[in-house]
């Protein structure tokens, strides 16, 4: 019971930003997120895979934007009033990901996240666990693995990415 007093003041590591791609809920650690913006005007990238939407200018910094839905096999993301871009700071790069809607900030401790869920049907979807809130299921997304960032930052010019 002593522990419960600790869990009430939430640590920032336990907070996630919840967003939607089509009808699924996803979460990424709040600490990895720099900001959330509307869909910017982008410039296409020569020779890039289709899920690269383009590059944008974020206050002087040129950042690649990725259509996460397309990458995860859910098809091209149509722009609506709710469509947003989350600027994610991964260990090696800063990228933007397009999502259908940003929902809320959720708190999920290690205890409430279920690991090793094997209901993973999508090829590129890499998750760190599942957070259940009543009926709703939020997949805690591992961005670096889902986008193969390791392969991307070590790519050689002209190589084809899958």
């Amino acid at each position: 019971m002593i522990e419960s007093s600790k869990t009430t003041d939430t640590k920032s590591e336990d907070r996630f930003l919840e967003f939607m791609i089509r009808d699924e809920f996803f979460g990424i650690p709040l600490l990895e997120i720099r900001e959330v913006i509307g869909v910017p005007k982008t410039i296409p990238i020569p020779g890039a895979p289709s899920w690269y939407q383009g590059i944008m200018n974020l206050r002087g910094q040129v950042i690649p934007i990725i259509d996460l839905g397309l990458k995860l096999g859910s098809g091209h993301t149509e722009k609506t009033n709710e469509t947003a871009v989350i600027i994610v700071e991964c260990t090696s790069v800063t990228i933007g990901i397009i999502v259908d809607a940003v929902k809320k900030v959720i708190t999920a401790t290690e205890k409430t996240i279920q690991k090793n869920q094997s209901q993973n049907t999508k090829k590129d979807l890499k998750i760190d666990g599942v957070f259940r809130n009543g009926e709703q299921m939020t997949l805690i997304l591992n961005i670096e693995k889902s986008l193969n960032l390791d392969d991307i930052v070590n790519a050689t010019p002209g190589s084809t990415l899958i």
Binding site: I45, A48, V62
Partner: peptide, 27 residues
Amino acid sequence: VKPISKALKFTRSLIGTAILGDGLPAF
């Protein structure tokens, strides 16, 4: 000149990026 993002290493024949007068980037 702004160096090209590490996430775009696969691109060919591009040295960098820059932001043009209207605020849009270009390769």
